[in-house]
Amino acid sequence: MTVKDDTKPAFIHAPSQPPRIKKSNYPPVFAERVAKRTKRPLGDSFALTNFGVNLTTLEPGGESALLHRHSRQDEFIYVLDGHPTLRTEEGEWDLSPGDCAGFPAGGSAHHLINRTEKQAVYLEIGDRTAGDEGTYPEDDLKAVMTDDGWAFTRKDGTAY
C-alpha cells in the first residue's frame, strides 16, 4: 500500500517560488561577483534528495558562479530566456533560449556570464553526490561539501 505525502505539492509555479535568502556561500571577497544572480530552488519543494534544480536569473553583468569544476557532481543547464555567455576553459559561446550544456564531474571548469542588457533565465540541475569538491582555476579558492553545506578555504587550506 502506498501512503500519500500531503506535505509536498503536486506542482508549483516556478517563477513564483521565493528566492534563496542567502545569495552566495562564497567568502565575502568573491560573493560580490555573483550578487546579480537569483536562485529559486525548485527541487527542494518536492523533497528531492538525489539532485537539485534551480530556476536561476542573471541580471545584466551577472555571473552564475566563479569559473569552477566539481570533482563528483554532474551539472546541466537549460536556457529559458535571454542570451548568457557560457565560458569554459576551452572557450566562450553565446547561448540562446533552448540551448543547453552539461558538465560531467571532473570535466572542464565553467560558468555563465550575462553580458547583455536583458535578464538571462535558465534551469540549473545538479546531483548531490557526497564528498564533492569544487576547484577554481582562476581564484585562490577551494570548496568541500560537508554535512552543513559548502565549506570554502584558500587553495592551501587556510581560512578566509
Rank of each mutant, 00 (worst) to 15 (best):
S16F: 11
D6K: 08
A14E: 11
L42Q: 08
S45M: 13
G82V: 04
T116Y: 05
K23G: 05
N50K: 03
T116H: 10
N50Q: 12
P27R: 08
L42G: 01
P28D: 15
R37G: 04
P18D: 01
S96R: 14
L86I: 05
L95S: 05
S64G: 15
R72H: 14
Q17G: 00
R72V: 07
H83E: 13
W93I: 06
C100G: 10
A31H: 06
E59R: 14
P28H: 08
E92A: 11
G106T: 12
L80D: 01
D94K: 11
G102W: 12
P84K: 03
K39P: 00
R40P: 01
S108N: 09
R115A: 12
S64F: 09
S96K: 14
H13I: 14
Q73I: 02
Q17W: 00
L58D: 03
P104G: 05
L80S: 02
L48G: 02
S96T: 13
C100H: 13
I21Q: 15
L48E: 02
I77V: 15
A10K: 10
A65G: 07
A10S: 14
S45P: 00
R33I: 03
L42C: 12
A35S: 15
P28R: 07
N54A: 11
E63N: 12
D44H: 04
G106N: 05
G82F: 12
A31F: 11
Q73M: 15
T85R: 12
L42D: 00
F51A: 11
F51M: 14
N25C: 01
P28I: 08
N50G: 11
E89I: 10
F46Q: 04
S24Q: 10
E75I: 02
I77S: 02
A31M: 06
N114G: 05
T56E: 09
R87I: 13
H111M: 09
S108E: 12
A14T: 14
A109C: 03
K23S: 10
L55E: 04
E117R: 15
R37M: 08
S64Y: 12
L67W: 06
F76D: 01
E89Q: 14
Q73C: 15
I12K: 11
C100D: 07
G62D: 04
P27L: 04
R20H: 02
G102K: 07
V79W: 06
W93Q: 10
F11Q: 10
E90F: 11
A14Y: 13
S45K: 08
V79A: 05
